[in-house]
Every structure is written in C-alpha cells, then in structure tokens.
Design a binder for these strands. Structure first.
Length: 345
RNA sequence: UGGGGUGUAGCCAAGUCGGUAAGGCAACGGGUUUUGGUCCCGUCAUUCGAGGGUUCGAGUCCUUCCACCCCAG
C-alpha cells in the first residue's frame, strides 16, 4: 500500500511529504508538469529530486501539460469569453490533481494521493468520511476542493489539515528542510504577472468588444472595453467618478452592457448552483446550511432546494450577489463540506 | 441683447463673522490572498476662471474682464 505525494516545490507539499515520511508510510513523490516549459524547470526538478533522495522517497515527474491545458486553461479562457468568471483552481482539483493525477499514480502502484492542502477528512457518524475545513481558519482551502467527487476524496490524504500555516516555515526549518521555491506562488499559476486580461488577449480567442456601462435603471454612465475585463462585485477599474463607489452588478451578455450600482444594490436573496458535486446526499443535510460563494468569505446561513444536479439557495442573511462561474461551497454549521457547485445566476 | 445663475484637483463637491483649501468618486502605489474580485493602508490643489484693489492676512470683501448655463427674445 503506497501513497503518492504531490510535490510542487513549495513549503506546504514539502511538509506534507515530511510528515507522512515521519509516519513511516510507503511513499512516492510525484511532481506534475502543468505549465509550458520555463527556464528554471531543470533546476527545480533537480532540487526536488535531491530533496526526495535526502528523505529517501522515490520521485517521479508526470507530464500533465496537455491535460492541464485541455481541462483547465482552455475552459478558463472560454468561460471568460462567454461572460462568466471562472475559478480555475477549483476545477484543477477535481479534474487534474484528484482526477488525472490520481489515476496516473494508481498506474504507478500508489492507491492514495496526498497533497499539501489545508483541509481535513473527518469521520462523521452518519455520513462517513467527509471533507472538513482545515484547522487554520485563515488558510482553509476546502472551498477549492468542494468540486472533488467523494470517491476521490476518500483516496486522498491531507497531512496539513490540522496544522496552522504560520507554523509551517519554522517547523520545516526544524526538520532541516527548505522549499525549492522560496516564495509562495499565488494568483493563477498559469497566468504570468497575475494579469489575466493580458493572458486572455494573447490566447488567440476572439473576445467580445466594448459596450455601455449602465445603472440598473438604464442610465448610461460610460463605456467598457469588454465584459471579460470585469466581474460581478468588482469596484476597481470602472473609471467612473460618482458620488459613491460603484460595483459591477451584472454582465448583460445579450446587450453587452455592464450594469453597475452602489454597494447596497449588490445584495441578493439567493442563487442557483449547477453541476452539483454532492459529498453528502442533500436529503441528509440539515435544514439550514452554510454557503460560501467566494473564497475567503464568511459562509452565510441558507435554506436550499435540491433538484437533481441543481441546487437553489435562499440566503437567510444579506448576501452579496454571487458571481456566475464561481463556486458555491455548501457546509454544515460545524465546517463539514456537504457539496459544491458552479454558480449559474 | 435684456434678466438670473455658475465658475475650487480628472469628476462631484464643502468652505461658516476674511485667518491661511473638508469629503466623496476616479487614478496610482502598497498590504492581505492558491481564482476573478472584495477589503485595508498610503499618495493625489503653495492653490480656488483671469487681472487689479482693500487688508497684517482673501477661495471668502470690492472691481474689471473671460467662460459656460438658464429664462426671456
């Protein structure tokens, strides 16, 4: 029984590897290649390999660039072009990491896959193994894993789930380990300079052009250069001087109009999520669930109505308008992930 | 051409009995952050349409001119 550990070169996956090694597990470190070749690749791979040798763990490199392009990058670009705001990190987990990568490590003799995510798998009395928020509330990444199917999560290990991110650097140096990448790479991993607009422009896909910026009553305030440059709830970048801050309320794709308004107009009563990934069958859910429609947002209480792979949510507290294309993660009040889906409207 | 109104940073806009330029928006910079966003912090008028005058001191008073707006015609 062997466990594969996905190592990126960052400190979290390194710690995951070290912790599992300390448990005496039979390990295989795997590094997935997702991005087009870069100048530092050779160096990074060599460093990773050295690191694994030090820890006495076998190391494999898996080329998943094609798959990543097909499953994450291309859908990302298409989503923007069609007026949605995609969440590539949330897709990468079910499709790549716990999808294709997990399949590939199976082929290498590992039946489980461990990652450095700050989430936990809890054993619930009635629901069985269930995804749970990480112990560290500021680092919890369960939102990004809510689209991963349950049978996949049951084959996952998250050694960092009970730990706090702040402790990680010190703990690593105690172990005498140093990450290959000194800095955390945030933002979208495949978008250079954190500039998704430039990335879209260079993607070669034809993008919709400019149109009006209007208030919800139809008053024209200005022009935009393409709906894909904006997203619901966004304040910056409108370039409109008004008596108060204006936020994007809606992207009217039909009319190519960006609808904006003051902050209080962002409030909404509910939303519809589709392509639901149920980690716990909704007929077992409590009457009231907690819904998170953005990463790093406080989950809000909500009622729900499940219809097949659609979930209608009725917020019980004021809630900022969710963004179509983003993920709605459903939690129990004690932080167990009941499911996740893609926001439709 | 008569009558009225307005002119303060990119936009909106406070400026009281003259005392040495609020605030909001936008923009820019930074922080937070495994998506987009949000949020937080910081920067942003030696100058108040232009000239002259009164005054120790004027955006604030007087005056001339200019520009724009509205109602008349």
């Amino acid at each position: 029984m062997k466990t594969a550990v996905a190592v990126s070169g960052g400190m979290d996956s390194l710690l995951a590897l070290a912790l599992l090694k300390g448990q005496g597990r039979d390990l295989l470190a795997v590094h997935g290649l997702f991005l087009p070749p870069g100048p530092q690749d050779g160096e990074v791979l060599a460093a990773l390999e050295r690191q694994c040798r030090t820890l006495d763990v076998d190391f494999e490199v898996l080329d998943l660039r094609r798959e990543f392009q097909r499953e994450v990058v291309t859908p990302f670009v298409r989503a923007y072009a069609s007026g949605l705001t995609p969440n590539p990190c949330a897709w990468c987990n079910p499709r790549i990491k716990f999808g294709i990568l997990l399949d590939r490590v199976n082929g290498l003799g590992a039946d489980r896959l461990a990652t450095g995510h700050y989430v936990r798998m809890a054993e619930h009395g009635q629901w069985g193994p269930t995804l749970q928020r990480g112990a560290d509330p500021v680092k919890d990444q369960s939102y990004f894993l809510s689209l991963v199917p349950r049978d996949r999560l049951e084959r996952a290990d998250f050694p960092l789930g009970g730990r706090f991110k702040n402790d990680t650097p010190a703990f690593l140096s105690e172990l005498g380990l140093e990450p290959v990448h000194s800095s955390e790479s945030q933002e979208i991993c495949f978008v250079p300079d954190d500039d998704y607009r430039k990335f879209l422009l260079e993607s070669g896909l034809s993008l919709p052009g400019g149109g009006n910026i209007e208030l919800s009553d139809g008053t024209v305030l200005g022009r935009h250069d393409g709906l894909w440059r904006h997203t619901q709830g966004q304040r910056k970048g409108l370039g409109i001087a008004y008596s108060e801050p204006l936020y994007v309320l809606d992207k009217d794709v039909e009319r190519n109009v960006l609808v904006v308004g003051p902050g209080h107009e962002l409030a909404t009563e509910g939303c519809l999520a589709r392509r639901m990934n149920y980690l716990v069958s909704p007929d077992k859910w409590p009457e009231e669930v907690m819904v998170q429609t953005r990463y790093r947002q406080q989950a809000k209480p909500s009622r729900f109505l499940a219809r097949g792979d659609e979930l209608e949510l009725l917020f019980l507290e004021p809630h900022a308008k969710p963004t179509p294309g983003q993920v709605a993660a459903i939690y129990s009040s004690d932080g167990l992930v009941l499911g996740g889906g893609v926001i439709e409207s």
